Deep mutational scan, measured.
Amino acid sequence: NNDALSPAIRRLLAEWNLDASAIKGTGVGGRLTREDVEKHLAKA
């Protein structure tokens, strides 16, 4: 759900053309954090 994404995370996902549903969020309530996105990018 994009409503739970911060503007910074939305921008990062758009910049790298990533799908938020493909990344497991570790923040409060399962929210994506910058670290989650960076770890996903490191694996790719």
Rank of each mutant, 00 (worst) to 15 (best):
G30A: 03
A42E: 13
E15T: 08
P7F: 07
R31I: 11
A44R: 11
S6V: 05
R11Y: 12
P7M: 09
G29H: 06
L5W: 06
P7L: 11
R31T: 13
G25A: 11
I23R: 01
L41P: 01
A22L: 13
L18Y: 03
S21G: 10
R34Q: 11
D19Y: 05
A14I: 10
D3G: 10
A14M: 11
A22P: 03
E38W: 14
E38S: 06
N2Q: 14
T26W: 03
A4N: 14
E15R: 12
G27L: 03
D3H: 11
I23M: 06
I9Q: 02
A42I: 10
G27M: 02
G27Y: 02
D36N: 02
L32D: 00
N17G: 15
S6H: 09
D19M: 08
D19R: 05
T33S: 04
N2F: 07
G27Q: 02
K43P: 06
D36T: 00
I23S: 01
K43Y: 12
A20H: 06
L41E: 01
N2S: 13
L5P: 06
L5G: 04
G25Q: 03
A42G: 09
D36A: 01
N1L: 13
K43E: 14
V28T: 12
E38V: 12
L32R: 01
A44K: 11
L41S: 02
A42W: 08
I23W: 03
E38M: 14
N1F: 10
I9K: 00
L41F: 07
L12R: 02
K43L: 15
A42Q: 14
E35N: 07
K43Q: 14
G25V: 04
K24N: 10
G30R: 02
A14T: 11
N1R: 04
L5F: 08
K39Y: 10
L32I: 15
A22G: 06
A8L: 08
P7T: 10
A22H: 09
L32T: 02
A4S: 11
I23D: 01
R10A: 12
K39V: 07
D19I: 08
R10Y: 07
E15G: 05
P7H: 11
E38P: 00
N17T: 04
V28M: 09
G30S: 04
A14F: 07
A4T: 11
G29E: 06
A14W: 11
A4D: 14
N17A: 08
L18T: 04
A14H: 09
A14E: 13
A8N: 06
D19C: 05
A22N: 11
L41D: 02
A8I: 09
L32A: 02
A8H: 09
A4R: 12
N17F: 06
K39R: 14
R11G: 09
L32Q: 00
K39M: 13
A4H: 14
N17E: 07
L41V: 11
L18E: 03
V37Q: 00
K43G: 11
S6G: 09
A44Y: 15
T33P: 01
E38D: 06
S21R: 09
E35F: 08
K24I: 14
R31S: 12
L13N: 00
I23E: 00
L12T: 01
S21D: 11
A42P: 06
G29K: 06
E38N: 06
N2K: 12
K24E: 11
H40V: 09
A44D: 08
A20N: 03
G29V: 03
S6N: 06
K39E: 11
L41K: 05
R10C: 13
E35L: 10
A22Q: 14
R31G: 06
G29T: 04
A14R: 11
A4P: 13
G27P: 02
N17I: 03
T33G: 02
A4K: 12
P7A: 14
R34P: 08
T33R: 06
A44N: 12
K43I: 14
T33C: 05
T26R: 02
V28S: 09
V37W: 01
R31E: 10
G27I: 02
A4Q: 12
E35H: 09
V37S: 00
R34N: 06
A22R: 07
A8G: 08
R10P: 01
D36Q: 00
A44G: 11
N2I: 13
A44I: 15
E15D: 10
N1P: 14
D36P: 00
N17V: 04
G27H: 01
L12F: 06
A22S: 12
H40A: 12
R34F: 15
D3V: 10
L41A: 07
L13P: 00
P7D: 15
L18Q: 03
G27K: 01
N2A: 14
D3E: 13
K43C: 08
R31H: 07
A42C: 07
R11W: 15
A14N: 09
A44C: 14
L41M: 08
N1D: 14
L32P: 04
A44L: 15
R11L: 15
H40D: 01
S21Q: 11
T33K: 03
A20R: 05
G25I: 04
K39P: 01
V37P: 00
V37H: 00
N17H: 11
A14L: 13
K43F: 13
N2P: 13
R10H: 11
V37F: 03
A20P: 15
E15K: 15
T26K: 02
K24R: 11
S6W: 08
L5E: 06
E15Q: 14
L5R: 04
K24M: 12
A20T: 05
K24T: 13
V28A: 13
D36M: 02
L41G: 03
R11M: 11
K24D: 07
A4M: 13
L5C: 09
T26D: 02
A42N: 10
G25N: 03
E15I: 14
E35A: 12
L13H: 01
A4C: 07
N17D: 09
H40L: 10
T33D: 01
V37Y: 02
K39T: 12
S6Q: 05
R10W: 07
V37T: 01
E35G: 08
H40F: 15
D3A: 11
V28N: 09
N1H: 14
G30V: 02
D36I: 02
G30M: 02
V28W: 08
H40P: 00
K24Y: 06
V28D: 12
N1M: 13
V28Y: 09
K39Q: 13
G30W: 00
L12G: 00
D3W: 03
S21I: 06
R34C: 09
A20V: 08
L13I: 06
L41Y: 09
A4Y: 14
R10E: 14
K43D: 13
E38K: 08
S21N: 14
L5M: 10
P7W: 05
D3L: 10
D19K: 07
E15H: 11
L13T: 01
K39D: 09
D19Q: 07
V37E: 00
T33N: 03
S6P: 12
D3P: 11
A22V: 11
G29R: 05
L5Y: 07
A44Q: 14
N17M: 07
I9W: 04
G29S: 06
R10M: 13
D19V: 08
I9H: 01
L13V: 05
I23N: 00
V37N: 01
G30D: 04
D3F: 04
K43A: 14
A20E: 07
T26Y: 02
A8K: 05
D19F: 05
L12K: 03
G27T: 03
D19W: 05
A20I: 08
I9L: 12
G25P: 10
L41H: 08
A44V: 15
L18S: 01
K24L: 12
G25D: 02
S6K: 04
A8T: 09
A8M: 07
P7R: 08
T33M: 05
E38A: 07
K43N: 13
R11P: 05
T26Q: 03
R34K: 13
E38F: 15
L18H: 03
D3T: 10
V28G: 06
N2H: 13
L12E: 02
N1E: 13
R10Q: 15
A22K: 12
A8Y: 10
R31K: 13
E38Q: 07
I23L: 08
K39A: 15
L12Y: 04
A22F: 08
A8F: 09
N2L: 12
D3K: 09
L18A: 04
I23V: 07
K24S: 09
A20W: 07
A42T: 08
P7S: 10
D36F: 01
R11F: 13
A8E: 15
K39N: 14
E15L: 15
G27S: 03
E15N: 06
E38H: 09
N17P: 03
A8R: 05
S6I: 06
A8S: 09
E15W: 12
A14P: 00
V37R: 00
T33A: 01
T33Q: 04
A44P: 08
I9Y: 02
L18I: 12
S21E: 10
R10L: 15
A14V: 07
K24G: 05
A4W: 15
G30I: 03
S21F: 08
L12I: 06
